[in-house]
Design a protein around this nucleic acid. Structure first.
Length: 572
RNA sequence: CGGGGCGUAGCGUAGGUGGCUAGCGCGCCUGCUUUGGGAGCAGGAGGUCCCCAGUUCAAAUCUGGGCGCCCCGACCA
């Protein structure tokens, strides 16, 4: 590619809308432009990266035996009614009508469509295993699109769906995808972790998230550096190292005035206590019945754990009205003392506390020196808290660390959730009709790009991993109007192109500094400078973007040297 | 959806207590000179000051309504 005929609109100043590094740099380097909130144009350079990631994914998916298909983005409401998700999926599901008033949804994911395909085309156990995948647009009317392409409304996703005759085969398919994912993200040059995750509203029995580590990530993962245990914070297990003050003598219960102090910070600040000396009371409605959960002031309630323990279908926090109704006090003053009409569950760490602060179920009042058994009864102590950095690993006992990550891929073992509701059956070897066992596997392409930039950037711009860089080599021809320089630059450009190196030549009539800055901004791994030194001494300067390493080589050695660098940097 | 902020040329912004032709930097166009780290000089183009209504002799500026965008939160008491 000749830069002069490309469209790479680099910017000196970034539009005020961008916050995080990847978003800013994608705009600055001329990769994307915004069309509307959560909707982006990918410009030629940005799309080239897309394409490269797409090809890596395609290669690894095909190698793993998956079959590429193409499904429509507009999907009929009937299919969504079959699984009940027409109602269960919230406003994220973009609904629309055609001219005949028939209802459709823009596909946010394609379980329904692909299951419909499978149930009509797969009839025998001989037809399985099958894994269908596609790489194309999804639409989710996100509650709040943000961070550029990291959370956009329309985005390209690789989604794959496996169909198997039974559980063991389905697990085999899952394992294949898991391994393919590790290859894909490794080849893309990402620093990532595969973590245990919650399956959310896609459903299913177990699931892994592939998180690219980045400080700006929207998700938190808990990782054990000793044994490698890694899980999404929403799902993670961890033992609290909290010792408590079990030995303290019980002091008399005392009602204290805390006017206008609602939050843990306010109350503990006002009473000059530590957050760990307070017990907070979270009020929920579990399938319509009230329930209270107690956790230490500096801990967070793990809703999924409570949900799982209660075994109910719906667990929602009480509304402000419900809080008033059941606790007889405005939000912020609920407490277990005198709380009636509901069961009270407490986190294990609470059992180690004496003389703690808690709400008094009365406006502007709290209790000090509250103690369970004496002042109120707890139905059961159990693990109810979200693990934190410093907790002990439940597998090996070492201290856990907490890391931020960007979810670039997610795999789910779905089981028969969709095949059951959509009657996706086949005839097995024993002559019986059985449900297909499914799995589904997604990758967000734009997130891979954003994550790569979050992990690879400096003050000058992007630093691409070789495998997804839009070009492997940039030839910076200084003063291209000079006939001699032009001759040298064009000759190596043509040679590289002919020999299969992905190369762009900066042939614009720009000052040297300008071209150097642009080359660094768009992050091409290898830069070759053609200037006076080339004309006078026959030397071509190579500079590596990642390390800043610089050296000059003669014409005869140039190609083999560059080829060697490119090969070395491509992770296989 | 709740809270906060912003909306002036392609981008970044000044002006805001009403008053001359809406200013500056970057970018863009023309010419000349330059060409190893975002070149210099000269000339030039480009604006429904987000939209609508109101107040006024007069609105980018004041008032009301709307729209768009960004950030935080979305029942974690």
């Amino acid at each position: 590619m000749r830069w002069s005929s490309a469209l790479i609109p680099t910017l000196k100043e970034v539009p005020a809308e961008a916050e995080i590094a990847s978003h800013k740099l994608m705009i600055k380097a001329g990769l994307i432009r915004k069309v509307a909130s959560g909707l982006y144009n990918f410009l030629p350079l940005g799309f080239k990266i897309y394409y490269k990631i797409e090809n890596i994914i395609r290669e690894e998916m095909d190698k793993a035996g998956a079959l590429e298909i193409l499904m429509p983005i507009m999907t009929p409401a009937e299919l969504w009614h079959e699984t009940g998700r027409w109602n269960l999926y919230g406003k994220e599901l973009m609904r629309l009508k055609d001219r005949a008033d028939r209802e459709f949804a823009l596909g946010p994911t394609h379980e329904e469509v692909v299951t419909d395909l499978a149930r009509t085309e797969i009839k025998s156990y001989r037809d399985m295993p099958k894994n269908f995948y596609q790489i194309r647009n999804k639409f989710r009317d996100e509650i709040r699109p943000r961070f550029g392409v990291m959370r956009s409304r329309e985005f390209v996703m690789k989604d794959a769906y496996s169909f198997d005759r039974n559980e063991p085969c389905a697990e085999e398919s899952y394992k294949k995808m898991f391994e393919a994912y590790i290859k894909i993200f490794s080849r893309c040059g990402l620093n990532f972790r595969a973590v245990e995750a919650d399956s959310g509203n896609i459903g299913g029995s177990f699931s892994h998230e592939f998180m690219a580590l980045a400080a700006s990530g929207e998700d938190t993962l808990i990782n054990c550096p000793a044994c490698g245990y890694a899980a999404d914070r929403e799902k993670a297990e961890g033992a609290s190292p909290f010792c408590g003050n079990e030995k303290e003598v019980l002091k008399p219960l005392e009602k204290v005035s805390t006017p206008g102090q609602h939050t843990v910070e306010q109350v503990t600040g006002f009473l000059n206590k530590k957050a760990s000396e307070l017990v907070k009371t979270l009020l929920y409605m579990a399938d319509g019945k009230p329930v209270a959960a107690l956790v230490k002031g500096d801990d967070e309630l793990h809703e999924i754990k409570l949900h799982r323990f209660l075994g109910v279908t719906e667990l929602v926090m009480m509304t402000a009205q419900q809080v008033e109704e059941f606790s007889k006090a405005p939000v912020g003053f609920a407490g277990p003392v005198g709380l009636t009409g509901m069961k009270i569950f407490a986190d294990n760490a609470v059992s180690k506390l004496r003389n703690f602060v808690t709400g008094a179920n009365e406006k502007d009042m709290h209790y000090a020196n509250a103690n369970f058994d004496r002042d109120f009864k707890i139905n059961k102590f159990l693990d109810l808290r979200v693990p934190k950095e410093g907790d002990l690993c439940v597998k090996c006992g070492s201290a856990l660390v907490s890391l931020k990550g960007i979810v670039v891929g997610h795999t789910y073992k779905l089981g028969t959730k969709y095949s059951k509701s959509m009657k996706a059956e086949f005839l097995d070897e024993d002559g019986k009709r059985k449900l297909m066992v499914m799995g589904c596997y997604g990758i967000g392409l734009a997130r891979v790009i954003a994550a790569a930039i979050e992990q690879g950037n400096d003050a000058s711009g992007i630093i691409w991993p070789m495998a997804i860089s839009p070009y492997q080599v940039i030839i910076t021809a200084l003063n291209y109007k000079d006939e001699k320089i032009k001759l040298f630059a064009d000759s190596i450009y043509e040679e590289f192109k002919a020999k299969g190196v992905e190369v762009i030549i900066d042939d614009r009539d720009m000052s040297a500094g300008f071209k150097f800055k642009d080359a660094e901004l768009i992050g091409i791994p290898v830069r070759i400078t053609v200037g006076n030194k080339t004309v006078n001494e026959g030397l071509f300067e190579i500079k590596l973007r990642k390390t800043g390493e610089e050296f000059a080589v003669k014409r005869e050695e140039l190609f083999s040297k560059v080829k060697e660098i490119v090969q070395r940097e491509l992770v296989k």
